[in-house]
Write a protein that binds this DNA or RNA. Structure first.
Lengths: 219, 219
DNA sequence: CGCGTTACCTACTCGGACGTAAGGTTACGC
DNA sequence: GCGTAACCTTACGTCCGAGTAGGTAACGCG
């Protein structure tokens, strides 16, 4: 029997602060995405991070602070991923298509990030919900700008059957919902997902531009 | 000065059990929709209901039980509202339109019910999330059946650009998202909302049926 | 080698919220 | 008029988890 006992899970020791913060944030995203804000416990996060609880508090502050950092980091990642894929010189439909592809690639690559942003962030009342809602609103307005630009470009005026804002809200919702669906169907590629959505939306939109309108028949 | 002091909020006393249960459920839906499952406290629910806490436990069980009853009651209401509006003899597009109208009318009339079902029910991990997800899946399949029936009726075969299930998931998401948007725009009527969605979806869908397909141009 | 400083942990406090025990009050049957 | 059952409450036990106090081990520097 040696003196040197096999220590279990030999935790790394005395690492620089930046590295610890990264570990903690990674663990936090993982646990928050799994259990949600309220059910997740700081003890579990610290355990997953391989760090004791006071470290979290000295480095990143309260539970709410920690959650905020998670949200902001992942949101930034998502926005960067989308902006990286988008080509501002292309026509509106191609811009939308590239944006959607990047979006679905991100969701596939970083499921936990997406879950935290989409599902969990709203469950914390107050500031975070507002923040997320704002981001979502900006996304909607961005899409609305695309749609409207395509519309006016083709000579679409004001129509009773049509609201850019409402339409965009629906489109963003459709994209999100399809993202959730894609999580259960990993074999469907991002290109296919984006194409589905384009087919759903853009064809109908073109018809609208050309003046075709669906109306309820009788009763 | 009379002996009869003006008691504040004179709570009703000794009401039959059924009435109390209704009051409690109403209060619970209200509080849960406002604060979410975890943040809502049984004390607050009891206060809003005008009833003391043990009543809730003797009549409706634990907090989780109570939440379950809320979910189920509101879900039933929603389904009934939709089924009431739908006319099974009409063609698929009209069925969808009527269903959507009923849905938006329900959301407008019972905001809190919708919020609890859509936003809060997923924040409780485990059984309820699964239950809600199942309901949502059934809704998606229902819509998919409509869509596919319309598709095959018009002679649409299997297409690479097309998945009834994925499309329906997107459509349901769009409907939900538009419902949330409508909560902030109460002046828009249910008929208008439903029409927007029909225009978004059905026109494009008809194009698909006719073989038109959107494809990315170059790059 | 000593001494301050930084990294880090064990072990605790404390508040808040679920759930309950025990008892009081009103109605109703007989 | 009196027991009995249903209705309803106050006041408490208990547990879980956020946040912290204080101590230990490693490293830098003279």
């Amino acid at each position: 029997m040696t003196e040197e006992v096999q220590r279990p899970t030999e935790r790394a020791r005395r690492l620089p602060r930046a590295v610890r913060e990264r570990q903690i944030l990674d663990a936090a995203v993982q646990v928050f995405s799994r259990y949600g804000y309220h059910t997740a416990s700081m003890d579990e996060i610290s355990e997953v991070a391989g760090v004791s609880k006071p470290m979290i508090y000295t480095y990143l502050g309260s539970k709410e602070d920690l959650f905020g950092q998670c949200i902001r980091r992942e949101a930034t990642r998502l926005l960067e991923a989308i902006q990286e894929g988008v080509k501002p010189d292309l026509p509106p439909d191609m811009q939308l298509w590239h944006g959607l592809r990047s979006f679905y690639r991100f969701v596939a690559d970083f499921r936990e990030s997406w879950t935290v942003l989409h599902r969990q962030a709203l469950t914390v009342g107050g500031a975070f919900a507002a923040e997320i809602t704002d981001m979502r609103t900006r996304a909607i307005e961005l899409v609305a700008a695309l749609v409207v630009s395509a519309g006016t470009q083709k000579g679409l005026g004001e129509q009773a059957e049509f609201s850019g804002e409402g339409l965009s809200a629906a489109l963003v919702g459709a994209a999100e919902s399809l993202a959730d669906w894609a999580l259960d169907h990993p074999d469907v590629s991002d290109g296919v997902l984006a194409s589905w959505l384009m087919n759903l939306v853009w064809l109908g939109f073109n018809d609208l531009v050309e003046g075709k309108v669906w109306k309820p028949s009788e009763s």
